[in-house]
Amino acid sequence: MSIKFKKDDVIQNTVYDVYENYDESKSTVEDIILPERDKDKDPILDIRGLGIDFGGLTAVDEFTIAIGRTEIAGIIGPNGAGKTTIFNLLTKVYQPTRGTFLFDGKDTSGMTTTQISKMGIARTFQNIRLFDKLTVEENVKAAMHEEVNYGLASGIFHGPKYRKQEKAAHERALELLSIFDMQDLADYQASSLPYGAQRRLEIVRALATNPKVLLLDEPAAGMNPSETAELMNNIRKIRDTFGIAILLIEHDMSLVMNVCEGIAVLNFGRIIAKGTPEEIQNNPAVIEAYLGKKKEAK
């Protein structure tokens, strides 16, 4: 795996310099980087040449990566690079203009957001999207509609099936909330939570759908360093307990370099580098770039 930055670049100060000095003609991006333990299995996400245009603007182009079943992968890149758009493509908020992706070996062309969720992709949002007027617990329980499957009649009459399933849902919701030590906040209105807790609640809600892939859009945004450190542990913990793949977008380089096993660097909608954190970090230009960015961006 080679890093696709100009060889003789002098020390650069910010990650943005790296993006600007990137020489596209030298790009030789490899397709699949999976962690050793996932290598013998098919990737859970096999994204092939995904691209989308908004009018004349090509927001994402030729996006090709594969994610292992228990991999934690990251997408980084400057503002407007197209990172969130990739999540919107993976959850079918947008239908791609080009390319497709396979989930667990199945082509997802033409699927809807709801179908994608049922298949096992869950996400959080960069600009938090909670069910504001519902309580914390209800936000989580709303996502458990597959296992809480009583019909409207039970919903009206609150019979034995209702009571049994609601009790189970209540316990499961508290259990999921306890990942982030949030079980005591269960009865608060979601919008009354502080920012960091809202971000964590979004993760819990996503987990409540029993996903196989969890997409996190800037999970550490607005968090202080100690919260971020805790989040890193929790991201690993989630992967280990649920055995799922996690793909995250993050500007916080310490988080990305620490938890991600594979990283794709995006600029102007295109992948300009892919590799392990070591591979990306071992490039002097990148080290300098990320260290510089980390200090300046904070």
Partner: peptide, 11 residues
């Protein structure tokens, strides 16, 4: 409360 989030959890 949030149509997009509702769809994203499969509602």
């Amino acid at each position: 409360d949030n149509r997009i989030a509702a769809e994203s959890i499969g509602l």
